[in-house]
Simulated assay, not measured.
Amino acid sequence: MPTALITGASAGLGAEFARQLARRRADLILVARSIGPLEELAAELRSAHGVAVEVITADLAVADDVDRVAARLRDEDDPVDLLVNNAGFGLPLQFADNDIDDEVRHLRVHVEASMRLMHAALQTMRRRGGRIINVASVAGFISRSTYSACKSWLIGFSRWANAEYSRDGVSVTALCPGFAHTTFHERMGLEQGEEGVPRFMWLHAPEVVRTGLRDAALGRAVSIPSLRYKAIVALAGILPRSLTSGVARRGRV
């Protein structure tokens, strides 16, 4: 059976990836900072689907923890077939109002950790094939603070890597959801109503994950769930940055 490693697996999109992949009979390696929720999810998936589930507690803002996860990805005796770089968090204020140490940690988790784990995964995947899904965001197509910049980097790097390593049988897909019903916004102390975003703009986690898995299987470099967000991305490419960044201040995607 294939093996998938998922970061940020204790809640939100990460947990949904775990559930959908377990239903497809994939063995799992779940990575997150909190051992309690990870163990609960692992027990649930073992019981419901009879798959093997390994748990790794790691804070991907900490270099030693990233190295431990990377070492697991480089294990040729028990290789990983799918890497889902999902770990991430948002910051509640604008750049100049956030603590700079929080901004640096944010950059390490979204960009540096994702890059290091991709590099580790490619060491075995180039010899046997595999898939990498980088959970980015529609925000990566819009100018807005460091979250947007991090996700833009992830999208651009995924596009290049997908073209470069497809010849080795490895696909790299940037999954770019918009607003989704997960715990992401709650962790920043924000409720859905505070975002100032219409209800129809919110996506459901199962829909986002199904789209990402499908597009990765098709070898697509970028996956944007729902037609409405595809339209937003198309408009963002032609509208002035001053306009799109102003609209983006209304919420966090």
Rank of each mutant, 00 (worst) to 15 (best):
3 T>H: 01
4 A>Q: 01
8 G>R: 02
9 A>V: 01
10 S>G: 05
12 G>W: 00
17 F>N: 07
18 A>S: 01
19 R>G: 04
21 L>F: 05
22 A>L: 01
24 R>G: 12
27 D>V: 03
31 V>L: 04
33 R>H: 11
37 P>S: 09
39 E>Q: 15
39 E>Y: 12
40 E>A: 15
40 E>L: 08
42 A>S: 04
44 E>A: 05
47 S>T: 14
48 A>Y: 12
48 A>D: 14
49 H>G: 03
49 H>R: 01
54 E>P: 02
60 L>R: 01
63 A>S: 03
64 D>S: 15
65 D>S: 14
67 D>N: 04
68 R>S: 09
70 A>R: 03
78 D>E: 08
78 D>F: 11
78 D>W: 13
80 V>L: 01
81 D>A: 03
82 L>G: 00
89 F>L: 08
89 F>H: 04
90 G>D: 02
90 G>N: 01
91 L>K: 00
91 L>P: 00
94 Q>P: 03
95 F>K: 03
97 D>V: 03
101 D>H: 11
102 D>G: 00
103 E>N: 00
107 L>D: 08
107 L>F: 10
112 E>H: 12
118 M>N: 14
120 A>R: 02
120 A>N: 04
124 T>M: 06
127 R>Y: 14
129 G>W: 04
131 R>T: 14
134 N>L: 05
135 V>F: 11
138 V>K: 03
141 F>E: 07
144 R>I: 14
148 S>L: 09
149 A>H: 13
149 A>D: 06
151 K>N: 03
155 I>V: 12
157 F>L: 07
159 R>Q: 15
162 N>M: 02
167 R>C: 06
168 D>T: 06
172 V>C: 08
173 T>L: 02
177 P>E: 07
180 A>C: 09
182 T>F: 02
184 F>Q: 01
185 H>E: 11
185 H>D: 09
186 E>I: 03
187 R>E: 12
189 G>D: 09
189 G>C: 15
190 L>P: 01
191 E>I: 06
192 Q>V: 09
192 Q>D: 15
196 G>P: 07
197 V>S: 08
197 V>A: 11
200 F>T: 11
201 M>H: 11
202 W>E: 13
205 A>L: 11
206 P>H: 07
207 E>W: 10
209 V>H: 01
212 G>A: 01
213 L>C: 11
217 A>T: 05
218 L>H: 14
218 L>P: 10
218 L>T: 06
219 G>Y: 02
220 R>C: 04
220 R>W: 09
222 V>P: 01
223 S>I: 05
223 S>H: 00
224 I>R: 13
225 P>T: 01
225 P>W: 10
225 P>S: 02
228 R>G: 08
228 R>C: 05
228 R>A: 09
230 K>S: 09
231 A>R: 12
233 V>A: 14
235 L>Q: 06
236 A>D: 15
238 I>P: 05
240 P>H: 13
240 P>T: 13
240 P>M: 11
241 R>V: 15
245 S>E: 15
245 S>C: 12
246 G>T: 14
246 G>M: 10
247 V>M: 14
248 A>T: 00
249 R>V: 14
252 R>I: 12
253 V>R: 10
